[in-house]
């Protein structure tokens, strides 16, 4: 059993009496690639910032590498990488200078990796940051977070400004980062297809709560669309536990359910007197159904 990099217990945050996150408990272990999904304002960024110790929690706590994240020692920070939503680069410097400055803070910095990625991502390190496009700045921010080969990489909507080619290259790089099984990545994104392609764990933040978390495959098995057919007519009430939505259409109905299992299948079919066909949903469908 590996030691988790991040552990949160009953984590909550309120700003001036307004709750923005509550009761979030989770663990991040080496090898995890966690995709954080949620609508705007659901609490994703707050969750990530609490993890990073940017702000103290109002309830519960989160530990990174065994330390309270709000009081993270320098040695633990050296194992951490972060890419914010909006870059915070120094405009007057060149990309190479900015890299030089940030690299000097870390005891181990992989120059070869940074140089290779800069070449692959067509990033001119001699260019002044002020003259860079938003996408180039984002690439540079990602390079700065990867250069010290962090054990835990946290990214807040890192691909929002990237073109499809750069996005794909970035995703491949993230897979590379986590490939050795010793590192973990937590990233939030609105591009569900990217999360689907990359993540092996999903956190869904809804209404300021960590509404669902677990393996991606478990999520796909858990939330499914049921097609009910009843030749002799459907009952007036389709009572299925954890139904998220029900759509009737004559003698058939479509129901999206949560926490579905084989046991429930036969039990529901018998109780309602219907034939049930189970359809697996894509992550995007699941996300939309959860927010319907």
């Amino acid at each position: 059993m590996s030691v988790p990099y991040a552990v949160a217990h009953q984590l909550g945050k309120a700003f001036y009496g307004k709750r923005v996150l509550e009761n979030a408990s989770f663990t991040v272990e080496p090898g995890d690639i966690v995709g954080v999904l949620g609508k705007n304002g659901a609490g994703k960024t707050t969750l990530l910032e609490l993890m990073l110790g940017f702000t103290p929690p109002s309830a519960g706590g989160v530990e990174l590498f065994g330390h309270a994240s709000y009081r993270l020692p320098g040695a633990a920070k050296a194992r951490l990488g972060f890419v914010p939503q909006q870059d915070e680069l120094v405009n007057q410097l060149t990309a190479a200078d900015q890299i030089g400055v940030i690299a000097s803070f870390y005891p181990r910095w992989d120059d070869a990796l940074v140089t290779r990625l800069a070449r692959e991502w067509e990033l001119d390190l001699g260019e002044r940051i002020k003259g860079m496009s938003v996408g180039q700045r984002q690439k540079l921010s990602i390079l700065l977070a990867l250069g010290h080969r962090p054990d835990l990489l946290i990214l807040d909507e890192p691909v929002a400004s990237l073109d499809p080619v750069a996005r794909r290259q970035f995703l491949e790089q993230i897979i590379d980062v986590a490939a050795d099984g010793a590192r973990a990545v937590v990233f939030s994104s609105h591009i569900v297809s990217d999360v689907e392609r990359l993540a092996n764990k999903i956190w869904i933040v809804k209404d300021h709560r960590l509404y669902w978390q677990g393996d991606f495959d478990a999520l796909k098995d858990s939330i499914v669309r049921l097609h009910l057919r009843a030749p002799r007519g459907l009952p007036d009430t389709i009572a299925i536990p954890s139904a998220l939505s029900v759509q009737r259409n004559g003698s058939s109905a479509t129901v999206v359910v949560r926490d579905w299992s084989d046991g429930l299948h036969s039990e529901t079919a018998g109780k309602l007197g219907v034939e049930i066909e189970v359809e697996q949903l894509t992550l995007e469908d699941i996300f939309l159904e959860l927010h319907r």
Binding site: L52, G53, F54, G74, L80, P84, V90, I102, F105
Partner: peptide
């Protein structure tokens, strides 16, 4: 003269939190 703008830029950014001993340095 880059000192005030650059150091304050870094101090007020996320770098101050995530860089090892960032604020002190």
């Amino acid at each position: 003269s880059l000192l005030p703008s650059m150091s304050m830029r870094l101090v007020t950014s996320h770098y101050a939190y995530v860089l090892p001993y960032g604020r002190v340095k």
